[in-house]
């Protein structure tokens, strides 16, 4: 039981770490889009990919990348078999937060 709780905490930390890293990565891609739009708006009109200009390709790319990141994150956050029971008990219903507190 105690071992499961420790594994769960480690798993939560791992998930949190993955989430922060993916947020930073996405922020960099998003920041690049904003910087290009602000300082080189004419570049955004240049042809870039599949006949699309850079503005459209980058903009649609940001949306598609967000969806891909979400799916990858979900895959990485699948509950390990050993921790599943503990987690399902510790987060079941509106009282979950109070129990943990």
């Amino acid at each position: 039981m105690a071992q499961n709780v420790i594994m769960d905490e480690a798993f939560e930390r791992r998930k949190s770490g993955i989430g922060i890293r993916m947020t930073i990565l996405y922020s960099i891609i998003y920041g690049g889009f904003v910087v290009l739009s602000v300082f080189q708006p004419t570049w955004m009109g240049a042809r870039a990919l599949l006949g699309l200009n850079l503005a459209v390709a980058y903009g649609l790319g940001l949306i598609v990348i967000a969806i891909i990141f979400a799916l990858v994150y979900n895959h990485l956050c699948r509950v390990p078999a050993t921790g599943a029971a503990t987690r399902s008990r510790s987060a079941s219903g509106p009282q979950a937060g109070q129990e943990e507190g």
Binding site: I18, I20, M22, T23, Y26, L62, A66, A70, E100
Partner: peptide, 18 residues
């Protein structure tokens, strides 16, 4: 849409747990 990245990776699960 980009804002949902922060919601998913940073906020969703801790919010539910807390």
């Amino acid at each position: 849409l980009a804002g949902w990245i922060v919601a998913l990776f940073v906020i969703a699960e801790p919010m539910k747990r807390r």
